[in-house]
Design a protein around this nucleic acid. Sequence first.
DNA 1: TAGATTGTTAATCGATTAACAATC
DNA 2: TAGATTGTTAATCGATTAACAATC
Lengths: 213, 213
Amino acid sequence: MEEKEISQAVISRLPRYFRYLGVLKDEGVERVSSHDLSRIMHLTASQIRQDLNHFGGFGQQGYGYNVENLYDEIGKILGLDKEHNLIIIGAGNLGQALANYMNFERRGFIFRGIFDNNPAIVGTMVRDIEVRPMEEVKAFVENNNIDIAVLTIPKSCAVEIAEQLVSYGIKAIWNFAHVDLNVPEEIQVENVHLLDSLMKLSYNLVSHDKQGA
Amino acid sequence: MEEKEISQAVISRLPRYFRYLGVLKDEGVERVSSHDLSRIMHLTASQIRQDLNHFGGFGQQGYGYNVENLYDEIGKILGLDKEHNLIIIGAGNLGQALANYMNFERRGFIFRGIFDNNPAIVGTMVRDIEVRPMEEVKAFVENNNIDIAVLTIPKSCAVEIAEQLVSYGIKAIWNFAHVDLNVPEEIQVENVHLLDSLMKLSYNLVSHDKQGA
DNA sequence: TAGATTGTTAATCGATTAACAATC
DNA sequence: TAGATTGTTAATCGATTAACAATC
């Protein structure tokens, strides 16, 4: 158990570091100092060094950080060197869009199946995979080593279905339903509450207008 | 200028308050104390009172908060009593999914148009609205009082198109492209970086496994 | 009135920033 | 070696929690 307990604030910044380092790497940049990176990313050099040092001393005094090395290390920290099998629950517009958007695949998130309880949708193809009925989820999860479920179903049934998925052995839920789930704390949940995000945008828009008036 | 400067941490919690109050309202609950609400929402009563008091004294000693009134007030704070016209830039899977998912409409976010530069998509119908070519964006924004643009385009062109949209008069951008935009600070931007969110889930999944081993 | 619960001030906690000795 | 830049400790800042007087 090398790492103690790293705050979610730090974790949330890791994918962004990863992204910027990827760009630098693609540009052929070999090394970067915390100061350089801070200018590009609009945060403080101090914060970058603090963040990275939660996971180890990746830098070298007088030199900075090796871009490719740091990129790889952060990838490993994020678990991108491992493959995760995921299924999508709910083959509506959003479920299908996520299934088709598969930059995720490139990062090790493998789309294995998609399920829906609407007979009109079951049997149709989504990205070479047939939509299966909900009754088959249990067996599918158990037989295919699925650890992530993506919830793109209405909030009215999301809480219940999440509980079922956990009982089938799911370890993590990427929740797009607009409701807070009720699962044991060892199950990882990441919420994407689109309406909340849009409301926040609305607040900032309206309150900025008010101040500018 | 009644409000000074309210932290984004507080703003981020408002939609969640709004959601829970909506549920209570639908259940016919008339009043709620900060303590009751804290138990339901899994946060402290103190935080709820602090958060709400940034915007005014909505409660009453010895009674608590009137559910319907507080719901309405938070709605107003979030700007949900006003209508916003929005357009979607990029009619791929995600753009179409968002166009069709219109719980947003119920909150005053009105879908007015959708644009794409792919000739194979231009002219097709998305939710009774024809996909228009990108050349028409400028005139459309100027003539239809559009204030929000939803970006569901590849990151390779997102930064440039965002700048153009701003020059056409867009006030806010809901950005689904996996890149940080470069717009003046008076333009409100809300990022939805799906891959970042999934990576965070991955981190928590992997690091939890490690600790449980 | 007595009990309940707010609004608000003060205390605590955690996260960010600054500073600097260590070291490449 | 001298200069650069890290890793890390200390200082600051901001956000959360606790406490309590005000008041319905």
